[in-house]
Design a protein around this nucleic acid. Structure first.
Length: 350
DNA sequence: AATGCGTGGGT
DNA sequence: TACCCAAGCAT
């Protein structure tokens, strides 16, 4: 490590001891808990994660409990947190560790990074936080600190930019106190080097920050030119019979993969054909719900229309008993549902 | 290499 | 309001 990198690390570590966060629930914990927290924290803010982390740990207190559980129950505990592939991959990785690593977390970077849901940054976080090894991390906070400090051009989606950021992350990471350093970089990013109006006067890197020197903090990181968010629409079918509601298990990949939801068709004219195929009945909804529910994803917005169909009796057969189920309203909570569907069904209870 | 993948909070 | 984007990864 050269002198510049050493002074960078020293400034960061000195700041951390006094101002950094030391009381997060996953700090000073075992690899399982560090891993769980890191996956939950992918693209998700600390305050959102904390209650999910606690609740998840209560049900799955260790790796074996997680590996032995059903994916349905794992997704149930993940519902509302988003990016559900994380939960599916978490479960897959738990099974691999149980079956191929004797239930012990790999301490080797290459073995860790091939596990589903564990990329370069998460592997670095686990190895540094849980095992004290020297590996850099590169989350949104660290990216922003480095992009500003070294005036890295481009935006995060660009491979050249990411390559440069990883190079810098590697270069500034000290061989000692790596966990403290990694934590410090995230803390500086989330507390000092914030997206808008960074608190540069309080920053330990003020003296070596190129953006501060050039008064160009607002220009880094550069923003990706964004395109218009597409609009999509769907029609969800709410079949009710007494207290029973028909739910559909979504395919294991794609949006809301593996979650239970309401059956969908493209438009109202397709409802009867759908019923004929899946329920062997035909009963049109009295009327479509007039209000559409507009749900915003990061990459598109979705207008959800709702058709409520009241049935006198439960249809005899469902053509696909694996992916369709009549669920009592009081048992809805046992299923992992997309957030807008959860809201629709909770309105029904009132 | 660029895009798909959730949700909620901040501005 | 509309937009940004957060403890990223998989493909």
């Amino acid at each position: 490590m050269d002198a510049d990198a050493a002074s960078f690390a020293n400034a960061v570590l000195t700041w951390q001891r006094r101002y950094g966060r030391h009381d997060l629930p996953w700090q000073q914990q075992d690899a399982y808990r560090v891993w769980l927290s890191e996956v939950m924290l992918q693209q998700t803010q600390v305050n959102t994660v904390i209650p999910y982390y606690q609740n998840f740990l209560t049900r799955f207190p260790d790796l074996k409990e997680l590996a032995d559980a059903s994916i349905d129950e794992v997704l149930q505990h993940w519902q509302g947190l988003g990016y559900y592939a994380r939960a599916r991959n978490l479960h897959k990785a738990a099974i691999i560790i149980r079956d191929q690593h004797q239930g012990c977390f790999p301490r080797d970077f290459a073995e860790l990074e091939v596990l589903p849901g564990i990329g370069r940054s998460t592997a670095g976080a686990i190895l540094s936080f849980a095992f004290g090894q020297r590996w850099p991390i590169l989350d949104g906070n660290v990216k922003r600190v480095l992009a500003r400090c070294f005036r890295v051009p481009g935006w995060y989606g660009q491979s050249a930019t990411m390559k440069q950021l990883w190079y810098l992350a590697e270069a500034v990471t000290p061989g000692e106190y790596t966990a403290e350093f990694n934590q410090a970089m995230m803390d500086i990013g989330s507390m000092i080097c914030v997206k808008s109006k960074p608190k540069c006067e309080a920053c330990p890197l003020k003296d070596m920050c190129a953006s501060y020197r050039h008064h160009s903090q607002a220009e880094y990181p550069q923003k990706k030119p964004q395109r218009v968010k597409p609009h999509k629409r769907t029609l969800m079918l709410l079949h009710r019979c007494d207290e029973q509601i028909l739910l559909w298990r979504r395919p294991p990949s794609g949006i809301w993969g593996g979650l239970w939801s309401l059956p969908e068709v493209d438009e109202a004219s397709a409802v009867e054909l759908w019923q004929q195929s899946f329920l062997s009945i035909v009963q049109s909804p009295r009327a479509l719900q007039q209000d559409v529910i507009r749900h915003q994803f990061s990459h598109y917005s979705l207008d959800i229309s709702l058709a409520i169909i009241e049935l006198e009796a439960l249809p005899d057969g469902i053509s696909d008993t694996e992916n369709y189920a009549w669920v009592d309203t009081k048992d809805i909570g046992k299923h992992g549902l997309p957030t807008p569907v959860r809201k629709i069904l909770s309105l029904l209870q009132e």
